[in-house]
Each structure stands twice: as structure tokens, then as C-alpha cells.
Design a protein around this nucleic acid. Structure first.
Length: 665
DNA sequence: AGTAATTTAC
């Protein structure tokens, strides 16, 4: 017999204390549904349920515990005069909050028709707010329109702010503007919540100018509106403006709270300023503001991006201490952080311990395996996901296909590509096609890859053609390479890599006129090349190294170490690959030590700053080149070090002169 | 009567 029914049994036969306040107090604080039902049974047996206070507190307890059915039964059991607008409003709000728009509307009709009770502002606001909170944004807007349209009640500041929030979520900026106008006319434009909601709405609708305008026109500055301003600017890529204003708020001595700090950290992370985010997170704590369960998933991607495993670990132990690991956001972000910091096993430990998982959690773990080339584990976990009745989404398939691509599982990849649409109704998007093109290209099936591109239901982007061009380089297919390159030169004329690739293909076939033609084209267009940049976490500090930049304080020692490494590598038979020198248009002077790629600088720094045998973890903003890849294999062997390099594509674990990618990436 | 605005992971 279960605990709850024995409790039920117990309470049926035990007298309730004679104190008339006992039951209402008990219902108010009642933590579980079984207990509420047991107390309810006792109230029925004793007849106390006829007391209006008892019935009403029971009604609210049931609604708070999420059962509208039990609540409705209690309400229907109440004598008609007791079924007031308060009870009706609570029922309407509860249905709305559960996303049951139809049920909420029916109740509204019923209270008028059968109950003879007219809804008031609170009833309507409960309806609008509940629909908004349950994600029924359009229904919330409809509710507000009906409230206004009936002409019996005027929407107040609460109605307007709820509706604005809903409008922002669905991007109905014209409705938002109408609400803005109404707020001015109705005199609630100055209400603090309305100000914040207006800023939020304009922020979500991409109206950066209006955000600032609403803020500037508001005479009263409170923390919530400042936070909304920061978040709005961040959403609209105005990072530096957000940072400037944040500093100004700090300077003005405004009482910024955890939400303010979380917002600015999130702003930096979402706009690629990871090191700034890490610094602000530190500063926040120095100011005595303790991170909450939202701050942690906001800052973790920054740690993951710069491979700050030490910071990630302390965030983990903090989350553990605070009991945040039950939060699916926190744990999913930890899974991702550990995977990106090279610790798939730790990621899996977190994943396995999660009390509940959603599609994002599964994707993070599957993606983690994919990143590490562990295709078998990725596919296995995908099947567990299906067994657990978790519906896969488009990200899931991106991860599964990427895993197949990394490991060269051509058949399996094909299978999942077909299955995603046929079995799971997920239409393939650009990234899925990109995986398939890479998968086919890697297997040498260049014509099949080209046919797939030709059959795509939308215009292929640069990644698709770039992938095909890369495979053409590997298999020496000049004809297809020319087709791909032509598309690429139109799609991304400033991308130097494409010219270099095509030129290399010509060179490998000794087609010198082709080489010259490409070289002429490169002169004509202004080329852009993303600066190579690597990060390495040494003794709890993240170091950033840029190719061709000697500003690191240890640069002299780094260069010395690199020279040493070069001598040793050549002794062991390492030949610098001229192929990959051509990859790099900036690298004109081969002997210039500063032209070394950033990952080599990072590894050299790691070697001289850590004790022998320590694993080095480097991450890089571009894909690792073949020359560096070869060099890493040599270094791992004669330095006796494990080196892991995470590039934009995947992890490379170098150990004993071998790489986990099996030299295909 | 007790309804409202700001921050979150793949």
C-alpha cells in the first residue's frame, strides 16, 4: 500500500483538531497532492468542508498543486453564493497557465452564463498572464483584444505588460506598437512593469532604437528596466553599447542584482566575447553577488569556448553545493562544457546523473561524442534516446550525422539522413546537407555528393560547396572542383581559402595556367582571412595566442622552444608540407617564426609552463592545418605528452605519435 | 481578490 493512501486511511479515522484554523492553514502550506487529498477526505468526513474558508483554501491548494479537476469538483460542491468571482478567476487563471486556452474561455463564458458572475480586471489579467506564461502568446493577445473590445473593462498596467511580453515572444511588433500607444493614452506608460515590458518587446522584435528611446523617455530608472535594456541591446548585437551602459550603471551606484550581472555575462557569451564574460563572472562574485541557477548555464559556454576546464569544474562544484544539478539547464550546460573541454567521460557522468533530461540534454551528449569522433557511442545514445521516448529534433540529427561523418560511417549516415524525414518528420536543413556532402565526399562519392547538392530544395551555401571543393582536393577531381569554386567565388569572394584550395588542386595536376589564373583573381579581390587564434588553460589561467602576434609575455621562450622542437622533429624525419604552406596565403615567409600557427605557439607555451607528462588542451578558432597536425603527432611522441586540439570541427587527441581522428578530418 | 516586467543550456 502506498504512502499516500495509508495517510489517507489514517486521516479518515483520526479527528481533525477542533481549531477552525487548522485546515485552512494546512491547505495553505500543503506541499503534495496526496496530502491535500487526504486532508480533503478528512474535511469531507468531518463536514468541515462546508466551511467557506476551508473550501476556498482547499480550492487554491488544488490549483497550486496543479489539478484543475479536483479544484473544479470542490468549487462545484460549494453553495452558489460562495462561488464568487475570486474562485472563478482562480480557475480561469489555472486553465490559462496550463496552456488550456479553450478551457479558460469556456470557464469565462460559464461564469457569466451559469454563475451569473461578471469577470473583473483580475479575471482577465489572470487569463492574459496565464496564457502568456504557458507560451500561448497569440491566445494572450486575443484575450487582451477581447477584454478591450468588450468595452466593459479597461486593460490596466498589468494587462498591458502581460500582453507586451506575449507580443514580443511572437514578434508582432505592430501589435506591440498599438499597445504602446494604448499605454500612453491610458496613462500606464510610466508604470515600471510597462516600461520594462516595452523595452523587452522592442528588444525581441529587433527594434534597437526604440529600446533606447523608451528607456530614455522614462524618468524613473529601476533595475528591471536597466536589465531589460542590457538584454535588449545584447539581442540586437549592440554588445559594446550594452557594456558601456552596464559600466555606467555600476558607476552611478545603481543597485545591480544577480539578474543584471547574469544579463551582461550572457550578453558577452552570446556575442563571442568569452574572455570578457569570464572576467565579468569573476567581478560579479567579487562584488558579493552570488550566481544563481540561471547564471551558471549562461557562463558555462564561455568556459567551454576557451577550454577553461578549471573554471568549469569550480562552477560544477558550486552548482553541486547549491543543488542546481537538478536543473536541466545547468546540467545540460555542464555536459556540453565537459565535452568541449575534452572530458567526454565527465560529461557522461553528469548526463547519467540527471534526474530528468530533455532534447537539449540528449543533444549535448550525442554532440559531445560526435565532437570526439566517438561515432559508435553517439549512435548508441541516439537509440537510447528513442527508447526513452525522447523525440529527436533537427539538432539531434546534426549531431548524429556529424558523428557518422567524422568516423566515415557512410551507410549509417545515409540511413539516418533518410530516416530523419521519413520516420521523425524532421526536414533536412543546410547543416544536414553539409554533413551528407562531407560524408559522401570523404568516401570518394563525389558525383553522388554533387547530385545531392543539385537536388537540394533550397540554395546551397558556401559550406556545402566548400565541403565539395575540399573533397575534390583529396580525390583530385578538377572538373567538379571548378564547378564548386565558381559557386564559392560568387558566394564568398573574400574567402582566401577557396582560392588556395583550387590553386592547390591545379598545382597537384601540374596545371600551371590554372594556378596562375587563380593567383590573378586573388589579386583583384580584397581577401579576408580570419586570424588564427588558440587558447590554452594553464594553471587556472586562460592564455590566448594569435598567429603572427608577439605580444605574449613569454614569447621569447616560446620561440626558443619552437626552434628546439623544429630541430628535433627534423631529426625524426618530419618534412614540412609545402601543400599546407600554400593553404596559408599570409604565410609568405616560411622562415619567419612568427608566421607559425597559433596552435603551435600554444603547445610550445604549454610545454614550457607545465610539468612533464601533463596533458595539454588547446582550442583553435579555425580548422587545424595538415602541417600542424603532423607536427602535433611528432611532438606528442617525443615529448611524451597527450595533446588535445579542438578545432572548429572536432577534437584531435594526439598520443604516441597518433591522432584519434585517424588523419581524416 | 493578489493578477505584472528583467537572466538560462544543444
Amino acid at each position: 500500500m502506498s504512502h499516500s493512501s495509508s495517510l489517507h486511511h489514517f486521516l479518515r479515522h483520526v479527528s481533525i483538531p477542533p481549531d477552525p484554523h487548522f485546515l485552512p492553514t494546512a491547505f495553505k502550506s500543503c506541499p503534495t497532492l496526496p496530502l491535500a487529498r487526504a486532508l480533503h477526505a478528512a474535511a469531507e468526513v468531518t463536514g468541515l468542508v462546508r466551511d467557506p474558508f476551508v473550501a476556498s483554501s482547499l480550492l487554491h491548494a488544488y490549483l497550486r498543486l496543479g489539478t484543475t479537476v479536483d479544484a473544479r469538483a470542490v468549487f462545484d460542491g460549494m453553495p452558489r453564493p460562495q462561488r464568487t468571482v475570486v474562485g472563478w478567476s482562480a480557475l480561469v487563471a489555472a486553465h490559462a497557465a496550463r496552456g488550456d486556452a479553450g478551457g479558460a474561455w469556456r470557464l469565462l463564458e460559464e461564469m457569466r452564463r451559469d454563475g451569473g458572475v461578471e469577470p473583473n480586471v483580475i479575471t482577465w489579467n489572470g487569463l492574459v498572464s496565464g496564457l502568456n506564461r504557458s507560451g500561448r502568446a497569440r491566445d494572450a493577445v486575443v484575450a487582451l483584444a477581447r477584454m478591450h473590445g468588450e468595452g466593459l473593462l479597461r486593460p490596466d498596467a498589468t494587462s498591458v505588460s502581460c500582453a507586451l511580453s506575449a507580443v514580443g515572444d511572437v514578434g508582432l511588433v505592430s501589435v506591440g506598437e498599438q499597445l504602446h500607444g494604448y499605454a500612453v493614452k491610458a496613462g500606464c506608460r510610466v508604470d515600471a512593469c510597462v516600461v520594462t515590458a516595452l523595452i523587452g518587446m522592442y528588444g525581441k522584435c529587433g527594434r534597437a532604437a526604440e529600446i533606447v528611446q523608451v528607456f530614455d523617455e522614462s524618468s524613473h530608472v529601476d533595475v528591471a528596466s536597466c536589465n531589460a535594456l542590457i538584454a535588449g541591446l545584447s539581442r540586437n548585437t549592440q554588445v559594446s553599447e550594452a557594456l558601456r551602459l552596464f559600466r555606467e550603471f555600476v558607476g552611478r551606484g545603481l543597485e545591480l542584482n544577480v539578474v543584471s550581472w547574469t544579463s551582461i555575462v550572457a550578453c558577452c557569451v552570446q556575442n563571442g566575447k568569452d574572455l570578457e564574460a569570464v572576467e565579468l563572472f569573476r567581478e560579479m562574485q567579487a562584488q558579493g553577488i552570488e550566481p544563481n541557477s540561471v547564471t551558471i548555464p549562461c557562463v558555462l559556454p564561455a568556459f567551454a569556448n576557451v577550454s577553461a576546464l578549471t573554471h568549469g569544474r569550480s562552477a560544477h562544484s558550486f552548482a553541486l553545493r547549491k543543488g542546481f544539478l537538478h536543473d536541466v539547464y545547468v546540467s545540460s550546460a555542464l555536459v556540453d562544457m565537459y565535452a568541449k573541454c575534452g572530458r567526454v567521460k565527465d560529461a557522461r557522468t553528469i548526463f547519467d546523473a540527471m534526474p530528468s533530461r530533455n532534447v537539449v540534454s540528449w543533444n549535448a551528449m550525442i554532440g559531445g561524442y560526435a565532437m570526439h569522433g566517438e561515432a559508435v557511442n553517439a549512435v548508441r545514445l541516439f537509440h537510447s534516446m528513442l527508447v526513452c521516448k525522447q523525440k529527436p529534433d533537427m539538432v539531434t540529427f546534426t549531431c548524429v550525422l556529424a558523428a557518422c561523418t567524422q568516423a566515415g560511417l557512410t551507410e549509417e549516415g545515409h540511413h539516418y539522413f533518410k530516416e530523419m524525414h521519413n520516420e521523425y518528420g524532421v526536414s533536412p536543413r543546410m547543416e544536414h546537407y553539409a554533413c551528407m556532402v562531407t560524408l559522401l565526399g570523404r568516401a570518394g562519392k563525389l558525383d553522388e555528393a554533387y547530385d545531392l547538392i543539385s537536388d537540394m530544395p533550397f540554395e546551397p551555401d558556401g559550406c556545402i560547396w566548400g565541403s565539395l571543393l575540399g573533397s575534390c582536393r583529396v580525390y583530385g577531381n578538377v572538373d567538379l572542383a571548378e564547378v564548386a569554386a565558381e559557386k564559392l567565388f560568387r558566394l564568398e569572394p573574400e574567402n582566401a581559402g577557396n582560392y588556395v584550395l583550387l590553386s592547390n588542386i591545379y598545382a597537384s595536376k601540374k596545371m600551371w595556367d590554372g594556378v596562375n589564373r587563380v593567383r590573378e583573381m586573388m589579386k583583384d579581390v580584397g581577401l579576408k582571412k580570419e586570424k588564427g587564434c588558440s587558447w590554452i588553460d594553464i594553471k587556472n589561467k586562460v592564455h590566448m595566442l594569435l598567429a603572427g602576434d608577439d605580444s605574449h609575455p613569454m614569447m621569447t621562450a616560446i620561440i626558443e622552444k619552437l626552434k628546439q622542437l623544429n630541430i628535433q622533429m627534423r631529426k625524426l624525419g618530419f618534412v614540412p608540407s609545402t601543400d599546407f604552406v600554400l593553404h596559408d596565403v599570409e604565410e609568405q615567409e616560411k622562415d619567419d617564426i612568427l608566421a607559425v600557427h597559433s596552435e603551435k605557439l600554444a603547445v610550445a607555451l604549454g610545454l614550457i609552463s607545465t610539468s612533464p607528462g601533463t596533458t595539454l588542451r588547446v582550442i583553435k578558432n579555425l580548422r587545424i592545418c595538415g602541417d600542424c597536425h603532423e607536427a602535433m603527432k611528432f611532438i606528442s611522441s617525443f615529448e611524451g605528452r597527450e595533446i588535445s586540439v579542438r578545432d572548429t570541427n572536432r577534437f584531435h587527441h594526439f598520443r604516441d605519435g597518433k591522432c584519434s581522428c585517424g588523419d581524416y578530418w
